[in-house]
Structure formats: structure tokens, C-alpha cells
């Protein structure tokens, strides 16, 4: 199956909720890559359908994100005016920095 599947099973857990201030929030934890970005895309689509002004992506549990994951985050910025990242791990923050996206995917203002 290993060869056939073509990749290692990366696990991602996506939790959609609304934070205390009523802002929609998607918590992403685990590893986000090509094999499972579709689930995050679906979660973002379900929220952006209601045209919120803000969206918080809680990345505190996200250990790894590849370019496909970044692509989905960028996709969110096109649909929601203000997309903020909450607590990205140093590894994820570095990926965003090195991809020149700190301006596109800003941290949540404290």
C-alpha cells in the first residue's frame, strides 16, 4: 500500500468554531500537506460562504505545512478581508517568512 498510496499518511485535525469575540476560527493541528489540504479547503469554504469580515486560523497545533497548505491559506485571504494566524509554530512561521508571505498572512494582532 505504501508505494501505491504514494505518500505517508499525514494526519491533520481541523476544528471549526467561533471565538469569544464571535470571530470564526479554524484550528488546524497535525501535519498539513497535499494529501489532506482538501479538508482545510472545505472548512474554509464553509465559513467564507457566510462572508465574515475576519477569520482566525489557529495554527498552534500545526507541526508541518507544505506549499499546498500555504496555497490554501492564501486562498482564504482572497475570500476574507482579514485573515490572521494565531500561534504558528516556529517551523510554520519560518515557512511563511521564507515564502515572503508575512504580509499576506499576518499574525493575529494582540
Amino acid at each position: 500500500m505504501g508505494d501505491l498510496a504514494g505518500d505517508r499518511a499525514a494526519e491533520v485535525v481541523i476544528d471549526t468554531r467561533t471565538d469569544a469575540a464571535g470571530v470564526p476560527l479554524i484550528a488546524v493541528s497535525g501535519e498539513l500537506d497535499t494529501s489532506n489540504v482538501a479538508s482545510l479547503e472545505a472548512a474554509i469554504a464553509s465559513i467564507t460562504a457566510e462572508r465574515p469580515e475576519r477569520l482566525i486560523l489557529d495554527l498552534s497545533g500545526l507541526r508541518f505545512m507544505d506549499s499546498a497548505g500555504i496555497s490554501v491559506l492564501i486562498g482564504a485571504t482572497a475570500k476574507v478581508e482579514a485573515v490572521y494566524l494565531r500561534n504558528p509554530s516556529p517551523a510554520v512561521r519560518r515557512v511563511i517568512e521564507l515564502t515572503g508571505l508575512t504580509g499576506v498572512l499576518p499574525l493575529e494582532p494582540s
Partner: peptide, 30 residues
């Protein structure tokens, strides 16, 4: 010039360093 891409490594006779440059947003973002 970099659109979200990691800077290249430049190695002179002795040491190697990544070329310091602004990393701009990737193509297809804005």
C-alpha cells in the same frame, strides 16, 4: 529577485552564505 522562493547559496573560496535579499510574495498571490 525572489517571489516567495528561498534565496540561493553563494559559496566563495571558503564559506557559503545564502544571498541576502527581500523575499517578495509568491506569484499568484497579489
Amino acid at each position: 529577485a525572489s517571489a516567495g522562493h528561498m534565496a540561493p547559496l553563494l559559496i566563495d573560496g571558503e564559506r557559503g552564505e545564502y544571498v541576502k535579499t527581500n523575499v517578495n510574495v509568491p506569484i499568484g498571490v497579489t
